[in-house]
Write a protein that binds this DNA or RNA. Structure first.
Length: 622
DNA sequence: GTAGGGTTAG
């Protein structure tokens, strides 16, 4: 029998065995004849041995059932109103994701402090019950409790997970208004939230204004730059961080490896891997997988495979990364081989991304039949095709010229179609010059993304190629009315351990004159060799045309011309483009590799093209 | 006593 008398918990018992049903288990506690007294008068008194004992036994629990037993003892021995003990119980329930148990306990606690509330917010967040998390957070705001540096990062993270920048911003404002001082946890969470919600400007501003930055804050910002298409800035930040004496840990290294993969710069990949070896970072599954991806995306497929082979432990992500690596490089047979090894000998179940990688590999290589089989196999594995799988299939069928089959697939699929899917179909229609189908695809793109200037250009090009000039004018007017301007694509080239960037008609490079001379010279030689520019890919933007002239000013070609003058004869040219390389450039590179006797490795938005002696590793499936 | 960052596709 438990009684609470003026702050003293008195526990009376006779020779008794008390059964307490609590939580998910039944605890049996045998009590002694003695009367125990426990003082709880002064909360500031040193923590009693019993409190500490309970806390340590709670922390050693291996499962919820063990927690339940200790919980029962806590109740019986009158320690439930001992805040550190109750909070620790709450915490451990939350850790085991037994949120219902935590909630029951929380409701029964007469006294709660900011820790109890914070643990509940975190507990709900851990089980992805974001609504409840927010509900508890609102209760904190309504109560007399102050906001603190513990609850805030949890809530900000919830907003990040939900990609809800509106609520995120609101919480940020409320916190600012409360006058509290933000610590590194709050700032890092805010920077990350803004960045993942696509508000990179806010993320940068916060980061720049921080008086102090710790390793996590730097890591978050490095990742944020990479995710927002500025991996070159990630690299600069990583160096700045190290110059400030901050030593990266594994998570930071994974982040920069990931940024380097996006950068696609081989010389940086080599430097980074050497650094990782030098620092003796243990290469676990995550870092190993990131390295596979980095080497593959920087053009070194062999290093990627070496990494894969040397890993002691691999998971489905590592296998998928290696399969994808073969895919970008047009090696569909290798990708399929690895897949069969994965599901055969290793009995590792593939996930939906494995299939995207595999289907992409098939479409890159023009493996229509194999791709179709894989698509069916995926369904047998119980994976419902998503829009990405369908996009691969549309790409696969479309590039192979099977436009009506692709169109039928689009008509009959039951899931929502997105812009990538239509863009894939449109790309295929353009290659095979099917104006009617292209028009339909472009219209759908415009409907889905009326703010994307690229779609207007595409549609107007389709009309232009078909001589429908009135329609061209209409589309152009619509674009101007909506205040949209074409965003240029960029091309990078590595030369002498540096990366140089070009955009269409670029004249900002110090060696501009030489580059243009080299390009003119090259173009003449290519035309002599039989190269015919493919005007299907000319952007019929009149103003732009007047400015930049013709196809020959594409950023890819400027980069190539620079590479020819800046690197030794015979050396490999490594080019990276942030959009898909067009058919005209593809053909240009093929001829260039023949005429200049250079090997040209081009990485675009989703694949690698290796041009050698007038042909491309990916055949005509560019 | 409670809190922030890392791997595969498109």
């Amino acid at each position: 029998m438990l009684r609470n008398l003026r702050g003293r918990f008195l526990l009376f018992s006779s020779n008794a065995t008390i059964k307490v049903r609590y939580s998910t288990c039944l605890a049996t506690i045998t009590l002694s004849d003695d009367v125990h007294e426990q003082s709880s008068e002064s909360p500031h008194a040193s923590v009693s041995r019993d409190t500490a004992d309970y806390i340590s036994s709670i922390l050693t629990c291996k499962n919820v059932s063990e927690v339940g037993k200790i919980h029962a003892q806590v109740v019986v021995n009158g320690f439930l109103q001992d805040l550190p003990v109750a909070n620790k119980l709450l915490y451990i329930y939350a850790q085991f994701r037994a949120i219902a148990d935590a909630e029951t306990l929380f409701d029964e606690m007469i006294v709660k402090d900011s820790v109890s509330w914070s643990v509940m917010v975190g507990g709900f967040a851990k089980t992805k019950d974001f609504v409840s998390s927010l509900r508890v957070f609102r209760e904190i705001l309504r109560s007399s409790l102050n906001l603190d540096n513990y609850t805030l990062p949890i809530m900000i993270r919830v907003c990040r997970e939900k990609r809800d920048v509106v609520v995120g911003r609101l919480i940020h404002k409320v916190a600012l208004k409360s006058g509290m001082d933000f610590d590194c946890y709050v700032c890092a969470a805010l920077v990350d939230m803004y960045a993942k919600c696509g508000e990179i400007g806010d993320a940068c501003k916060l980061f720049d204004e921080m008086p102090k930055r710790d390793l996590v804050t730097w890591t978050v910002m490095i990742g944020a730059c990479a995710d927002s298409g500025r991996p070159d800035e990630s690299w600069v930040l990583f160096e700045r961080m190290r110059n400030e004496g901050i030593v990266p840990d594994r998570a930071a290294v994974v982040t920069i490896v990931n940024a380097c993969a996006k950068l696609g710069a081989l010389h940086k990949a080599v430097i980074l891997h050497d650094y990782i070896r030098l620092m003796n970072f243990p290469i676990g599954v995550v870092l190993g997988t990131a390295l596979i991806d980095m080497h593959a995306k920087c053009g070194n497929l062999d290093s990627a495979r070496e990494m894969f082979d040397s890993m002691k432990e691999r998971n489905v992500i590592s296998w998928s990364a290696m399969i994808a690596a073969y895919g970008y490089h047009g090696k569909a047979t290798k990708a399929l081989e690895l897949f069969h090894m994965m599901v055969g000998d290793r009995r590792l179940p593939p996930n939906e991304i494995t299939f995207v990688s595999l289907l992409n590999a098939c479409s890159h290589a023009g493996f229509v039949e194999e791709g179709t089989k894989i698509f069916d196999l995926m369904i047998k594995y119980g994976i419902t095709p998503n829009v990405k799988h369908y996009t691969c299939m549309i790409d696969l069928l479309g590039r192979a010229g099977r436009l009506s089959e692709a169109s039928e697939m689009i008509e009959t699929m039951s899931i929502e179609k997105d812009e990538t899917l239509w863009a894939s179909f449109l790309g295929a229609c353009r290659i095979h010059k099917n104006v009617e189908m292209a028009e339909k695809a472009a219209m759908s793109l415009l409907e889905l993304q009326p703010q994307n200037p690229g779609h207007y250009i595409l549609l107007s090009n389709i009309y232009a190629n078909d001589g429908k000039w009135e329609e061209v004018a209409k589309v152009r007017n619509l674009m101007n009315q909506r205040g949209l301007k074409k965003v240029p694509g960029y091309t990078w080239i590595e030369a002498n351990n540096r990366t140089h960037r070009f955009k269409v008609g670029d004249r900002t490079h110090p060696k501009s004159r030489e580059i243009y001379d080299a390009l003119k010279d090259l173009t003449e030689k290519l035309e002599e060799a039989g190269f015919v520019p493919d005007t299907n890919f000319v952007l019929h933007d009149v103003d732009e045309e007047v400015k930049v002239g013709m196809l020959s000013l594409h950023s890819e070609k400027l980069a190539l011309a620079f590479g020819l003058i800046a690197t030794p004869v015979g050396s490999l040219l490594r080019i990276t483009k942030n959009l898909r390389v067009c058919g005209d450039c593809h053909s240009f590179f093929k001829f260039a590799s023949l005429v200049t006797k250079r090997e040209i490795s081009v990485r675009d938005a989703s694949r690698f093209h290796c041009f050698k002696e007038g042909s491309c590793s990916c055949g005509d499936y560019w």
